[in-house]
Every structure is written in C-alpha cells, then in structure tokens.
C-alpha cells in the first residue's frame, strides 16, 4: 500500500471537524475532572472541620466526596465512550471518502 497523502487528509474540512468535535468534548471534560478531583485534597486539607460534618449516620462529607470521585470517573468514562462512538463514525466517513477504507 502506498503512503497516504497525510497533508491532503489533514487539510480536509471533515478532518478539521473531527478534531473540533474531539476538542469540544475533551477540553471541558478534562477541566471538569481535574477541578473536581483537586477539590478533594484542597477541601480535605484546608477545610477539615467542614468535611468532618456527618451526613448519613456517621458517614461524613469527606468520605462521600471521595466516593463520588469513583462515580464521577465512571460517568465521564461512559460519556467518553458515547462521544467516541460518534468520532468513530466521522473518522470512518472521512477515510472512506478519501479512499482509505
């Protein structure tokens, strides 16, 4: 197989659209998860009194917020999978159009 014309694909408006679509998801999603995650050590470290307040029985904000990080990770991973399925279609259409699939 001869080398694909990389520059031609890179210049294709559909490739630009694919990159834009990825950015539209990845930038807000990563800003969100980094902020949400770093909030945990910041709150626990600098506002321990607040985080020690109990919510359900003896379970406090600190433990609940830590547990919510697991849920947050799994939800974002699921959203990523959904978004990536769309990117796969865009990618497939682009490569088919240019005769690479």
């Amino acid at each position: 197989m001869s080398q694909p014309d990389w520059n031609r694909i890179a210049a294709d408006p559909d490739f630009a659209a694919l990159k834009r679509a990825k950015k539209r998801f990845l930038i807000p999603a990563s800003l969100f998860f980094l902020a949400y995650y770093i909030a945990l050590p910041v709150l626990v470290g600098f506002m321990p009194a607040t985080m020690k307040q109990e919510v359900f029985g003896r379970v406090n904000w600190a433990y609940l917020f830590a547990l919510s990080q697991f849920l947050m990770s799994w939800i974002l991973a699921w959203l990523y999978i959904r978004a990536a399925a769309k990117w796969d279609k865009m990618e497939h259409a682009l490569l088919a159009k240019l005769g690479h699939r």
Partner: peptide, 8 residues
C-alpha cells in the same frame, strides 16, 4: 495528527 486521530 492524522495517524493519532484516525488510526490510519
């Protein structure tokens, strides 16, 4: 960029 984003 094309390789990384499309797997071509």
């Amino acid at each position: 960029s094309v390789r990384a984003q499309t797997g071509l």
